[in-house]
Design a protein around this nucleic acid. Sequence first.
DNA 1: GGCTATGCCTTGTGTTGCGAGGGGTCAAGC
DNA 2: GCTTGACCCCTCGCAACACAAGGCATAGCC
Lengths: 112, 112
Amino acid sequence: MLKGHLDMIVLAALAGAPAHGYAVIQEIHRRSGGAFDLPEGTIYPALQRLEKAGLLSSRWTTAESGRRRRVYTLTRRGRLALADHRAVWQRFIEAVGGMFGHADHATARTDR
Amino acid sequence: MLKGHLDMIVLAALAGAPAHGYAVIQEIHRRSGGAFDLPEGTIYPALQRLEKAGLLSSRWTTAESGRRRRVYTLTRRGRLALADHRAVWQRFIEAVGGMFGHADHATARTDR
DNA sequence: GGCTATGCCTTGTGTTGCGAGGGGTCAAGC
DNA sequence: GCTTGACCCCTCGCAACACAAGGCATAGCC
């Protein structure tokens, strides 16, 4: 469904503030109005991929609860990539919109 | 890029009038404002997939130029599927929009 | 003891867009 | 005559990737 757009979504979720994987899932769920409910098997590999690409950086932290968390932060390149993805996305939805835009031009009134 | 949305795009291209594969490519290119320039290796398998799924039907025709063409027509189920895809798409872009919607809420004014 | 929530991870699989290649016709240009 | 490009059909194989499934661990509640 969100093939190819996952990176953008994850980056967007981290644009506000750094967060750990589990929190990213919740943030995405929240911001999307409940539309996106990504499983861990989707998000964790994505975070690793983005870090390897230099768009995210991570560090281990320990919450007051004693839990170990890997917190991801958007890098400079990550922010640039996000802006980039966003522009591409904009053009994409406009193009798709164009596909619907005009029902047709064959059945329409051809008079004058 | 358009992973998962190809079907919708192809169906939309055929919503106006039946067309053969090559024409579908051109129609998509035209309606998308030049944004989509799909290669044959993408569109032909897609058309076959959609026909096998019962969303399209095809018949061979011969143009006045003598060329053999396989013309695809949207079936009843195809129209329903298109409307369906469109609704999903609408919800999808709204969800993505929500991801950007609010920059954040941490750096924003937290006063009162 | 069992269940749920939190938190991390990997492996395997199915889908799918698309590059590369292979048919063939016809017109225009060198 | 030969090449280039538009038109028109097709198939094979690769790579990317979302995600299901499974595994491990801690903590709180019933």
